[in-house]
Design a protein around this nucleic acid. Structure first.
Lengths: 322, 322
DNA sequence: TTGTAAGCGTTATCAC
DNA sequence: GTGATAACGCTTACAA
């Protein structure tokens, strides 16, 4: 009945008497609208999906917090999926092959993205925003970070504070992913600009941007001769692991080795020593990506845009900034 | 058409010729089944909701990771919502009042639960599992932790290692929540059993179980006379903050003050010093709660059960276990 | 202002 | 084995 729907939706002109009558019936029958039926009819689920590699990586959980908040403000809820490092899972999501895609749009934040993966999205009409990458080819909306500049800023800081043997942790074993490539490029550019040589043995790989990988990579770096006097890590988590490795090797941060990361997760602020880092504006990323995906949901034909989130150097104890 | 549905679902007896024909048509038209329509018909969304106070608290993000994994193994996806400290949001979820409840069951992991809140669930038929609480009254399924025993084990460890002035951080300003009450009880029981007095000024509150709250509470504790020689924190995050406060006060962990937490998040393993803690078996909690909610979805009338997840003491550097 | 009926895209029932 | 047809529970033209 038309009127019932109106009452439920709190909509237009309904007589007081009728409204009361309907309300009574609702109470009486303990009626609850079925959201699925409503969705089928309206075509909107009111849900967004946020896809990250690992939700327990602080950068992603902090991003998720901000995305959930930003989405709530405009009446959306967020479904979170983690792909692990499973490309098959990413593929299913991108192609829309999954049988439970009950959401209106997809915020895709791959730690690692092969561009082939994106080609798969083609057929699917699901609105898609890419987060964190900076490889804008005009096909998809991006909310990006200037990874090259971020890495360069980090390394420049190390150079400015007098470090001369600067190593890096985080290049990817497989050379096909955008973020690590860009951060590597920024690292090399900073060294080159300062007239310093890029030593291949100073550049180590890390498959998972985890504390454990940072620890292992740093241990290896500390064996080198000459020993690095600074380590630029592609993520804060790597840096946390690297700092622990320095201590376990009987050395000190920042006296013997300076350490800097990227992300600015809260953990780094409480670490000992506190971690210098490149702060990425996650609230900005969250807010803009939610705003953008809703625009796209409402107008699927709107042209792709790229939004670059700001970043800034945060100097703390781990680079000697006491 | 019956046959098409069969083909799509990979179901029963369909002739090869027909199957091929349908497949061709699917390709041709780039047909994609609509998950919402399917859901309306079958009554199953294939989604679970995990509700936590704050997804960026490592304990919850690690739990979320495990829940997503456990759910994926049985063909479910997970929607995550964070309630912040917003009781209104919790109420909407519990009463089923929200307009976007596109999931089959609810895993509710409140940091703080008022029992009144649960009464609200009554009318809703949504399958519900409570996580982390241990206040089993037979109305709802629980996957719980023995909070009293966990707290007691932590404090006993401090006593065993010779600490005599043991403070606590984490009791709740409002005295209505189960977890902090139980942990407080365990703390007091351990002291009393050891013939030690419970000093009210050694018991400090923390509203949010965050690093910041731990830091602030510890700073206050360190001003006391006599100064505590150990701090039992109701969560690892509080402990991380507390350790930092000890250092900033010019003191040392564990020499001057031992610190122990509860949760066993990865951050504690890499902290300096590494954090002693009570390890909660999150994979167990995740697995059992997913198993249980699916049971309940399939048989709404099945009687409520309580599952208690194991915990164990993990001794690391922060309590002098070098 | 209120009632009727169509239709969203599936799956399930039931003849053939 | 295969093809109509109803039904899931809602929203929304359209008619009254």
């Amino acid at each position: 009945m038309r009127t019932v729907s109106n009452v439920v939706s709190g909509y237009t002109h309904v007589s007081e008497r009728m409204r009361a009558k309907v309300q009574a019936a609702i109470e009486e029958l303990d009626y609850r609208p079925n959201p699925v039926a409503r969705t089928l009819r309206t075509g909107r689920t009111g849900m967004l999906a946020l896809v990250v590699p690992e939700i327990d990586v602080p950068y992603f959980s902090e991003l998720a917090r901000d995305v959930i908040e930003a989405a709530a403000e405009v009446g959306y809820r967020v479904m979170i999926d983690q792909t692990g490092h499973d490309h098959e899972r990413e593929r299913q999501l991108l192609t829309g092959e999954d049988r439970t895609m009950l959401f209106d749009g997809l915020l895709f934040s791959p730690l690692v993205t092969k561009s082939e993966l994106l080609d798969m999205h083609g057929a699917s009409r699901m609105p898609l925003i890419l987060l964190g990458e900076h490889d804008f080819d005009g096909r998809y909306d991006h909310v990006a970070i200037d990874n090259v500049a971020a890495a360069r800023d980090a390394v420049n800081h190390l150079i400015t504070t007098g470090r001369t043997r600067i190593a890096a942790i985080g290049s990817q074993p497989l050379e096909e992913y955008a973020t690590p490539l860009q951060r590597s490029a920024g690292y090399e550019a900073a060294l080159t600009d300062a007239g310093m040589a890029v030593r291949p043995d100073y550049v180590t790989t890390a498959a998972h941007y985890s504390r454990t990988d940072g620890y292992a990579a740093a241990r290896a770096l500390l064996e080198l001769d000459p020993r690095p006097d600074a380590i630029f890590c592609f993520s804060d988590l790597l840096a946390i692991g690297a700092m622990r490795a320095v201590f376990d090797a009987g050395l000190s941060v920042p006296e013997n080795v300076a350490v800097i990361g990227i992300d600015d997760v809260e953990e780094g602020r409480f670490a000992r020593p506190s971690l210098s880092t490149i702060s990425l504006d996650t609230p900005f990323i969250a807010r803009e990506s939610v705003r953008r995906i809703i625009e796209r949901i409402e107008d699927p034909e709107s042209p792709s845009t790229e939004i670059v989130a700001p970043h800034k150097l945060v100097v703390r104890e781990s680079t000697g900034g006491r």
